[in-house]
């Protein structure tokens, strides 16, 4: 079987990839994709620990994380659409005013 630490290494690597995407990308939608990547990395850790302890709690927690990530994606993309309709751009650097 695959040792738990290898799964945790994979989760850490995915989390850091998501972090790098959030820090460097300019397009709002790509930043949201980075957030999804980080949430998935957390999920992988939950599943790995659930396997290590032979319990279901980690799996149930990761199910809730999946639901909340879907909710986050829906609201985030709705906000991006709204901001795009106003500013005519999805570039974070050019969205720099909070008043109409």
């Amino acid at each position: 079987m695959v040792p738990t630490s290898h799964v945790l290494f994979l989760g850490a690597a995915l989390f850091c990839l998501g972090l790098a995407i959030i820090l460097t990308k300019k397009n709002t939608i790509v930043v949201l994709m980075g957030v999804e990547l980080m949430l998935n990395a957390a999920n992988l850790n939950f599943i790995a620990f659930a396997r290590m302890h032979e319990s279901l709690e980690g799996q149930i927690m990761s199910l809730f994380v999946i639901v909340l990530a879907a909710a986050e994606a829906a609201v985030g993309l709705a906000l991006v659409l709204r901001v795009y309709q106003y500013f005519k751009t999805a570039d974070i650097d050019r969205i720099n005013s909070v008043r109409e």
Binding site: V2, L63, I66
Partner: peptide, 18 residues
């Protein structure tokens, strides 16, 4: 990977939702 780690239902949910 979820399926390999013994979480078949979470894997199916992942495909459906994500």
């Amino acid at each position: 990977l979820y399926v390999f780690l013994g979480a078949d239902f979470v894997g199916a949910t992942q495909i459906l939702v994500y």
